[in-house]
Design a protein around this nucleic acid. Structure first.
Ligand SMILES: [Zn+2]
Ligand SMILES: [Zn+2]
Ligand SMILES: [Zn+2]
Ligand SMILES: [Zn+2]
Ligand SMILES: [Zn+2]
Ligand SMILES: [Zn+2]
Length: 687
DNA sequence: GAGTTTGAAACT
DNA sequence: CAGTTTCAAACTC
């Protein structure tokens, strides 16, 4: 029990994946993806990245698989300026950043990649500019988070993750079935489970990919502004973690960064998300884990293939994590912190990764094991904020942090210093054990590591389908079973997650302030309820949210697409705001159609409807941020294709007969969350 | 900080 | 799949 063994892990996957329909599916998709990916990469990513130093190399590796890609990238490079500028412009629009535009151009010209970023990063504007699209996404994320648009962050993440991951995936799959599948090495790494990725991905991924693909190009969301503000101690941690993750994923590189650079960027983006925590303390810890692992792995395995796969996975994780992090309140501060952090990170670009790690170390991983990989460097401040130092996370005494009882493990992150666990095996050193255990658990319950809360996007008016209209259509993936808490305390996962109870819940005497399972929560009512709930949350939550957030990363494994979820508002950083949906929300949008059709089912996640509310509540600024962030992200992505996709044939149910999980224990047989896919965000946009 | 309550996760 | 046990967080004091 305690120690899961590799054997288990080994069993699953790879071969199966190849054979699996999913694979086929993916393959079929691949052609398409490549194209888009190519565009993305070339257009956005590749350009900037190309310029990237050696660091970026890894990313290239992914692309390398297809020589053509590389070529394109390179060729594009020259064009970069132009395109980049275009992209930038777009971005700017979204972001409204004037600065970004001008700078962007510079960047494009220079093609400076990470390095540039690093320096410029200091300044938000630079940052934004630097990362045109790819970066954008990344930055974006942060901003989104910051903004309070956790969603944005998520979306950003998604986009980033999607685009990158997708591409690589696609490419790989066709070319290479899954050599790594076995991934002995992969196994080592948490994220690594490339096999998992494929597996899960396939079904879900399809959707995700599609979305990503579509989005990626569209992405324009921008919101550089947000970045500026970001910065926080916590962020540092997050960033570090993120960086690691991202770094691992070479795939993301397409985004623009190569390993290191990417990492940095990614981190940045992610961080923001995490930043939520800034108040937070250590929400990040979670991030570190998987992410760290990934990073580590990546380092270890630079072999392109593995890396790619891994990276994808990792990326996913990272993204997820970041998204999961949600920042509730700290939008502004986060922004600032993030920004600064990011910039800093970037600055150290070379070290970027390292830096990141450092950050994580500070808070997250004292062990430094992970950190070790890269570096040494600056630790930055991480602590700064930790304010209390609170980064505490789990307190496990008997589970060795290898069971879902452990929040860290459940969140997909390694335990770090702040954890008070005993005999903890959830550390980078025991990566193999961790991964093996994780696989086992996943084998039992594919959704075990998926985000607990899925946001349906009712926000989309278009969709309309939502049966639930609940304001926040988000709901717990499995529903709660509360008997005594009335779903009014954190004991209730629905409540804790800031979502109302749904028909999936078996609660008794449900009084969930976010919405009762009846659906009674009418909109108006909801608002009130929510408010109340939030208040309570705030009081109760104070700080939590860290791990939960982390959990989001799960999606990565399970579903790439899902990952994106923005975390949303949920987490509240400190007590400031009520988290709507706390931690675990995942939002996915929807693009599941294809996937679903094919097989994919996925979970979907929706966007958060409540963003606006949150924003409002949280920040006055929201409007600006929100508009910019959310909308852009969502919009860009969603609007165009997403919506349609989302719609999916039936409506969206994701669950398919086989569905991914065949038997998903967690899901109730009957009800599964089908997550309807919702279109990606329709509208929040600022526009 | 210790002790209680709670409901998920794990186990049978 | 249900019932029971285990577990660690949430809560209370
Ligand atoms: Zn633990
Ligand atoms: Zn822990
Ligand atoms: Zn631990
Ligand atoms: Zn409940
Ligand atoms: Zn519930
Ligand atoms: Zn309930």
């Amino acid at each position: 029990m305690d120690t899961p063994e590799k054997t288990q892990i080994a069993a699953p996957p790879v071969s199966a994946h190849e054979d699996s329909p999913v694979f086929n599916f993916i393959r079929s998709l691949s052609p398409i993806k490549p194209v888009k990916s190519a565009h993305i990469a070339q257009t956005f990513t590749s350009l900037p990245f190309t310029s990237l130093p050696s660091v970026f190399t890894s990313p290239h590796a992914n692309f390398h698989k297809d020589p053509s890609f590389l070529r394109r990238h390179q060729s594009l490079d020259p064009s970069n300026p132009n395109r980049s500028s275009e992209n930038h412009n777009i971005v700017c629009r979204n972001g409204d950043f004037t600065n970004g535009i001008s700078q962007k151009r510079e960047i494009s010209d220079k093609k400076v990649s990470v390095e540039v970023h690093a320096e410029p990063c200091k300044e938000h504007s630079d940052f934004a500019t630097e990362f045109p699209q790819n970066l954008r996404h990344i930055f974006y994320n942060p901003e989104g988070n910051l903004t309070g648009c956790s969603a944005d962050a998520e979306s950003a993440v998604e986009t980033a993750g999607m685009s990158t991951p997708i591409i690589p995936v696609v490419v790989k799959s066709p070319e290479k079935p899954l050599p790594e599948g076995e991934g002995q090495q992969q196994n080592k790494e948490w994220p690594i489970d490339a096999s998992d990725l494929f597996i899960f991905s396939s079904p879900n991924d399809a959707e995700a990919f599609r979305e990503l693909i579509q989005r990626s190009p569209d992405f324009g969301t921008p919101v550089p502004n947000f970045h500026r503000g970001l910065r926080r101690r916590c962020l540092d941690f997050e960033i570090a973690e993120l960086c690691k993750l991202s770094g691992d994923d070479s795939d993301y590189s397409h985004m623009a960064l190569s390993q290191h650079d990417e990492n940095t960027l990614v981190n940045e983006g992610q961080l923001p998300v995490k930043s939520e925590g800034d108040p937070l303390r250590c929400t990040l810890p979670g991030i570190g884990l998987h992410l760290n692992a990934l990073a580590t792995t990546s380092n270890d395995y630079q072999s392109v293939e593995h890396e790619n796969l891994l990276s994808e996975n990792q990326l996913m994780n990272t993204q997820i994590s970041s998204s999961s992090l949600n920042l509730p309140n700290a939008h502004q501060s986060l922004h600032e912190s993030l920004t600064s952090v990011v910039s800093e990170d970037i600055g150290s670009t070379d070290n970027g990764v390292l830096v990141v790690q450092d950050g994580s170390q500070s808070c997250a991983y004292p062990d430094g094991e992970e950190l070790d990989h890269n570096s040494p460097q600056k630790k930055r401040r991480k602590a700064e904020h930790s304010e209390d130092g609170a980064c505490k996370r789990c307190n496990c005494k008997k589970s060795k942090c290898l069971k879902l009882y452990c929040e860290c493990f459940a969140a997909g992150v390694y335990c770090i210093e702040p954890c008070s666990c005993l005999d903890c095996l959830n550390k980078p050193i025991h990566e193999n054990t961790v991964l093996a255990t994780r696989k086992q658990i996943e084998s039992r319950n594919p959704l075990a590591f998926a985000p607990k809360v899925i946001r349906a996007s009712d926000s989309f008016p278009d969709t309309g389908d939502d049966s639930n209209k609940t304001p926040a259509s988000a709901r717990h993936k499995r529903g709660c079973n509360c008997k005594k808490s009335g779903c009014l305390k954190k004991y209730c996962e629905c409540y804790q997650g800031g979502v109302g109870c749904s028909f999936n819940c078996r609660c008794e005497g449900c009084k969930n302030s976010f919405g009762r399972k009846d659906g009674s929560t009418l909109i108006s009512v909801e608002a009130e309820v929510i408010e109340e709930g939030k208040e309570n949350f705030e009081k109760s939550m104070g700080n939590q949210g860290s791990l939960e957030i982390m959990k989001q990363r799960d999606p990565i494994q399970a579903t790439p697409s899902a990952y994106y979820r923005p975390s949303n508002q949920n987490t509240y950083s400190a007590k400031n705001e009520p988290p709507q949906s706390t931690s675990f929300v995942t939002t996915s949008s929807s693009s599941v159609l294809h996937a679903s059709q094919n097989q994919g089912q996925l979970k979907h996640i929706a966007l958060q409807p409540e963003f606006e509310k949150h924003y409002d509540n949280n920040n006055n600024n929201n409007k600006n941020n929100v508009g910019g962030k959310m909308p852009e992200v969502l919009r860009s992505n969603d609007t165009p294709n997403t919506v349609i996709k989302t719609t999916s044939p039936n409506g969206k149910r994701v669950s398919s007969p086989h569905s991914d999980f065949g038997s998903s224990p967690p899901l109730r047989s009957g009800r599964r969350l089908i997550l309807k896919s919702i279109p990606s965000f329709p509208s929040l946009t600022q526009h």
